[in-house]
Design a protein around this nucleic acid. Structure first.
Lengths: 339, 339
DNA sequence: TCACGGCACTTACCCGGTTCAGTAACTCCG
DNA sequence: CGGAGTTACTGAACCGGGTAAGTGCCGTGA
C-alpha cells in the first residue's frame, strides 16, 4: 500500500469520476448527483482523506491560522497564569472554527514585529493578536502598514488604528479604592508592572485620579518587572518608608504573595497592619494565608472574545472593538480596616 | 500599488527573466550568473518578497511546523509554570530553525489524538510532541500508526515505539529521600499528581522502593489533580492522620505553597514540625516564608532538547532518545530535622 | 573550422485542491 | 418535434513555488 497521503485524485480514480466532481462532492456544492456524492464521501471516509491545508491555503489565500507572539522572558511567562489562561481561551474559540494558533515566544517587541512581518509575508497567518502594548509601540504602525488583521489585547487608546479588545481597569481600580477607602484606608500604594506597558500607565493615572477624587493620599507607585523578587523588594521598601501605606495593590498575584510573605516576615499582621489586594486572581490567591482579596476576571473568556473579534476581522475585513467585563473585586482575608 | 503579496513571477517580470531563474537565484542554486542573482535578490528585497509557505509546503511536503496539544483544563495549565516554560524552551530551538509551533489546548487525550490525526492528514505539521502520557495511552499507538514523527516528553517505558526525551525522576527522588533521611526523617509522604499519568506512577513506585531501601516507613501517597485546593486538602488529611508524616514532597509548587499555608494555619511550625519539598522550582518557591526546598530543573532546556530531537526526527526519519539532567535538590528553609 | 563542453537560462510539468467554462444527455413546454 | 433550460459531469487553467529536461550561445582545443 502506498505511503503517501490520499488526495482527491485517488478518490476520483476509485470513484470513476474526475477530481472536479470529487471536489464538488466533498464541499457540498451542487453539480453532482446525490448518489455520486454519497459514494465519493464514502470512499473519502474509507481511505481517510483529509484536505491538504497547504493546497487549500494556496487557492483561497487563507491559512486558517492566527498568530500570537509574546515578548516576555520565559521565567516571567511561566509564573504568570494570565497568558496560559488567555491562550486557552483563545484556543477554545479558534478550535471550534477549525482555526489553528501559531505561537512564538520572542525576546523583544522588535523581534515580535519581525515575526509578524514574516508570518504575514509567508501567508502563514490570517491575522495576529497583539499583547503588552508599549508606548510608543512600533508594532502598531508596523502591522497597520502591512494591512494585516490584528486585535490588540488592551485599551483602545493604545490600539492606534487596530481593533482593541479590553477590559476597564479604571472601573476595577475605582471599586477597589472605594472599598479600601470605606474600610478607612487613606494611604494606598501600588506595586505595579512594567512601566513601559501602556496598561501600567493607564492604571497609574487612574489610581492618581481616583485617589484624589476619594480624598486619599497621593499614591506611591513602585514599578517592577512582575517578578516575585521585585514584588518582595518593593514591599520591603514600602513598609520601611517613612510614609508606610496601610494598603497595597499588586499588579499580579505572584508579587502579592511575595509581598504577603515579606510583610509577615517583617512582623506585620496582614490584614490588621497592612491590607493587600492582588490584581488577577488565581489559585495562588486562595491557597495562601490569609487568602488574598483579588481583582478577578474571567481570563479565558477574555481570550475567547479576542479570538472571536480577530476571526470576524479576518472574515469581514474589519470588526468592532469589544469591551470585556471589568475585573470584579473579591474580598478575602487580606483586607481589613487599618489598625 | 497592488494589494497582493509579491510572488516570484513579479520578480521575474521586473528582472526580465523567467521565474525559474528567480527560484534558482533566491535559493542559492547554480544556474544563474552572479550579476543576475544579485539583481534578482535586490528586487526581492526591495519589494519585500517572502516565499509563500503554502506553496513551499505543497512541493516539498514540508510544513515547517510542529504541533503540541495539551489536554489539561485551562485553570490547571495556567497555574503550573511547567508548560509555559517548556513551550518557551521549545520555541527557542524552533525559531532558530525557522520552524513554527502549532498549539492546541483540548479537553481530553482522545481529542488530542484526533487533533494530531487531523494535523498530520492535512499536512499542517511535520511532527508533534506528546506530553502527560497515561497508561494505557491510545495516543502512542495512534501516532505510531500514522507514521508521524513524535517525541514523547516522558520516560522511555511510557513511550512505546516513539522517541522519548526524559529526565530521571527516580534519581531526583533518591537524592531527596536520602537528604530527608539524613536529617532524621522516617515518615515521608507525598502529595502526588494525577494517578493516571505514567510519570506519577513511576514516581510512586520509585518512592516506595527507595524508601524501603533507606529503611524509611512505607510512604503514604495522596493523588490529586495538581490544584492548590486538592494540595491543601491532602495536606490537611496527612497532618490530621494518626501516622502524621514529618516530611511531605509535593508534585508541583502550587500544592506545596498550599500545603505550607495549611500547615501553618494548623499551628505547625515549618520546618520544625513538618518539612516540605516542592517538585519543580519556580519563583513561587522562593517568595513564600520559609522559602521552599525544591527539586529544580531547567525546564526551558528540557523543552529545547525535546525540540531538537523532534527536528532531527523530521529531518532524518528517526533520532535517538535523550536523557536530560535529573532535577537538582535545592535545600531552602522548608526542610530541617524533625522535632 | 568544427565538434564539444559548460554556462545561463527557458520550457514544461508537478504538488493538491479549486474554479471557470464548457458539453453531453435529459426534461419540459409550446 | 424543436428549442430552451436543467442536471451531471469534464478539461483546462490557476494558486506560488519547485524540479527535470532541454536550448541557445560561448569559448576552447584539435
Amino acid at each position: 500500500m502506498s505511503k503517501h497521503r490520499p488526495t482527491i485524485a485517488d478518490i476520483a480514480r476509485r470513484a470513476g469520476v474526475s477530481k472536479v466532481a470529487v471536489s464538488y462532492a466533498l464541499n457540498d456544492r451542487p453539480g453532482v448527483s446525490p448518489a455520486t456524492r454519497a459514494s465519493i464521501k464514502a470512499i473519502a471516509q474509507e481511505i481517510g482523506w483529509r484536505p491538504n491545508s497547504a493546497a487549500r491555503a494556496l487557492t483561497h489565500a487563507r491559512a486558517d491560522t492566527v498568530g500570537l507572539a509574546l515578548s516576555r522572558p520565559a521565567r516571567m511567562l511561566g509564573v504568570e497564569p494570565f497568558f496560559m489562561e488567555l491562550i486557552s481561551g483563545i484556543e477554545t474559540e479558534l478550535s471550534a472554527r477549525g482555526c489553528a494558533l501559531l505561537l512564538q515566544v520572542v525576546t523583544d517587541p522588535a523581534q515580535e514585529l519581525e515575526m509578524y512581518r514574516r508570518w504575514w509575508g509567508e501567508g502563514r497567518v490570517d491575522g495576529v493578536f497583539l499583547a503588552d502594548v508599549r508606548s510608543p509601540d512600533p508594532r502598531i504602525e508596523g502591522i497597520a502598514e502591512l494591512g494585516m488583521p490584528a486585535v490588540v489585547i488592551g485599551h483602545p487608546s493604545a490600539a492606534g488604528t487596530l481593533t482593541p479588545v479590553w477590559s476597564d481597569d479604571s472601573a476595577a481600580l475605582r471599586d477597589t479604592l472605594t472599598y479600601l477607602a470605606a474600610l478607612g484606608h487613606r494611604s494606598v500604594a501600588r506595586v505595579a508592572g512594567l512601566p513601559e506597558l501602556i496598561h501600567t500607565q493607564l492604571r497609574d493615572r487612574a489610581q492618581r485620579e481616583i485617589s484624589a477624587g476619594l480624598g486619599l493620599d497621593e499614591p506611591v507607585v513602585v514599578h517592577t518587572d512582575y517578578s516575585g523578587e521585585e514584588g518582595a523588594h518593593a514591599t520591603r521598601r514600602l513598609i520601611s518608608s517613612a510614609t508606610r501605606p496601610t494598603a497595597v495593590i499588586y499588579d499580579n498575584d505572584i508579587m502579592a504573595v511575595a509581598g504577603l510573605s515579606v510583610a509577615q516576615e517583617m512582623g506585620l499582621d496582614v490584614p490588621a497592619d497592612l491590607s493587600l489586594v492582588a490584581w488577577d486572581d488565581s489559585q495562588l490567591s486562595r491557597v495562601v494565608r490569609p487568602p488574598l482579596t483579588a481583582l478577578s476576571r474571567d481570563i479565558p473568556a477574555y481570550g475567547s472574545h479576542a479570538a472571536r473579534t480577530l476571526l470576524a476581522m479576518v472574515a469581514d475585513g474589519s470588526a468592532p472593538g469589544f469591551e470585556d467585563a471589568a475585573a470584579r473585586l473579591v474580598p478575602r482575608g487580606s483586607t481589613a480596616p487599618p489598625r
